[in-house]
Every structure is written in C-alpha cells, then in structure tokens.
Amino acid sequence: MRADAVRNRERIADIARQLFREKGYDAVSMDEVAKTAGVGVGTLYRHFPTKEALYDAAIQAWVETVNAAADKALAGEGAPRERLLAWFEAYVEFLTRHKGAAWRITSAMGDDDSPFAAKCRTYLNANQRVVDTLAGEGALRGDVDAMQLCRLVGGVAAVVDNSELSADAARSMLAVVADGVLAA
C-alpha cells in the first residue's frame, strides 16, 4: 500500500474510533466518518467495505492493550481475588469505552461469523490466560472456563454501559462474580 493510502487508512480508523467512542456504534454513519476524516466515501469503502470492518479496525489497538491489562492484573501483587477483580475492572472498562460495544461483543461471543469475532477472540484469549494462571494456582473452581468469564463480566459491562450505575455498584457486581468463580 502506498504511504498516502496507509495514512488515509490510519486517519479514517482514528476518526472512527473517536466517533464510536463519543456517539456509539449505531449513531455513527459511514458518510459521517468519511466527511470528518476529510476523505471521499469511495476512499472509505475501499479501505473498509463495511461498517463492521471499520469498527474492527478502529478498535484493533485494543488487542495489545487488552493483553497488557491481563498481564498486568495477573502479575500484580495480592491474593488471587484482588488480581481477578483488577482484571474484571479492566475488562469492563474496555467493553464500555465505546457506547453499545459491551452487549455487541458479549452477545457475539462464540459466533465465528460475527463481524466482532476478532474482538471476541481477543477477549476470550485474555480470559483464557487469566483462567489458566489462576487455575494453575488452585484459585478457581474447576468448572470455570474463559467463555463463562467473558459472558459473566460482559453482562456486568452491558448493564453498566446501559445505565447510570456508579463505579462502586459495578465493583460490587464484579465482586459477586469473582466470589462465584473462586475456589472455596
């Protein structure tokens, strides 16, 4: 790809990321992204043939950020419960960065045909590392798996994203989830 095409693609993804964060996925149109990015609609569609492809590119930077957050939570000091809660809080924060993303991503978990499949795999893989680490320490119940964590914590994130709950209320729900998955 030519240097100017790469710059256009990156600018479009950056603008889309800002718009999705500010307005939510449903409220952003492809025309609005093109206009705000200062490119023609044809240029936008050449790089991103669908809104889902644009959304995926706009939040691709999350892959590294999500992995770093999981690693940070697992490497943190403290009991398994505190490390698990640190990860859960980071996970909810990621899912609620873009209005409407929490339920979209959580409901797409396990659907390889979803336009959000790459994001789902990123979160699933991060949760798998958390499960593997904490299970290896004997800290999790034996029947807990990464998909369950994605759906449970994603459910809390969806409630937070669609309500006026305080951070304290979210933390208390996450504590209930953590207590439910930790070994007795």
Rank of each mutant, 00 (worst) to 15 (best):
A108D: 11
S114R: 10
P49A: 15
L74K: 00
L140F: 05
D145M: 06
F116Y: 10
V63F: 00
K72E: 15
Y45P: 13
A61F: 04
E52Q: 13
D145Y: 01
A126M: 05
D112L: 11
L134C: 03
K51Y: 07
Q60S: 09
L54D: 03
T96G: 09
D71F: 06
L95I: 04
A68S: 13
L149H: 05
L84H: 04
A70Q: 05
I105T: 06
G142H: 05
T50Y: 05
V144S: 12
A73D: 09
N125D: 10
A73G: 12
H47K: 05
G110H: 13
R46G: 07
M147R: 10
A139R: 04
A70H: 01
A117R: 05
R141D: 08
T50N: 11
N67R: 09
D132T: 10
T50F: 10
F116P: 00
D113A: 13
N125E: 14
E89Q: 13
R104L: 11
P115D: 09
T106S: 10
G100L: 12
A117W: 03
D132E: 12
T43N: 05
G110Q: 13
D71L: 03
R141E: 11
I105R: 05
D111R: 09
A53T: 08
A118W: 01
V63L: 01
I59R: 04
R81Q: 11
F88L: 12
E64Q: 14
A79D: 10
N127H: 06
D132Q: 06
M109T: 03
A69V: 10
T122D: 07
G136D: 10
F94E: 02
L95Y: 02
A90T: 07
A75M: 04
G136S: 03
A73Q: 04
E89H: 08
M109S: 01
A58H: 02
W62V: 01
L124Q: 05
T133S: 12
D132F: 08
F116W: 08
W103I: 12
A135S: 08
R121K: 14
S107C: 10
I105A: 09
T43L: 02
A75I: 01
L44K: 05
H98E: 11
A90Y: 06
T133W: 11
R129E: 00
L85K: 14
A90D: 12
A108L: 01
T133P: 11
E89W: 05
T96Q: 13
A53C: 07
A68E: 15
A61M: 00
E137N: 07
L54Q: 04
T96E: 14
N67A: 03
E93M: 02
F88I: 04
A86Y: 07
Y45I: 09
D143R: 15
N67C: 04
A68H: 15
V130F: 02
R104G: 07
R104D: 07
K51A: 06
F48Q: 02
T133M: 13
A69S: 14
V63E: 02
E93A: 11
Q148F: 12
D56A: 15
D56Q: 14
G142A: 14
R46V: 08
G136A: 11
R129K: 13
Y55C: 08
R104V: 08
A86C: 13
G78A: 03
L74S: 10
W62A: 01
A69C: 07
V130P: 01
Q148H: 06
R46W: 14
R46I: 06
N125C: 00
K72R: 12
K99R: 15
W87K: 09
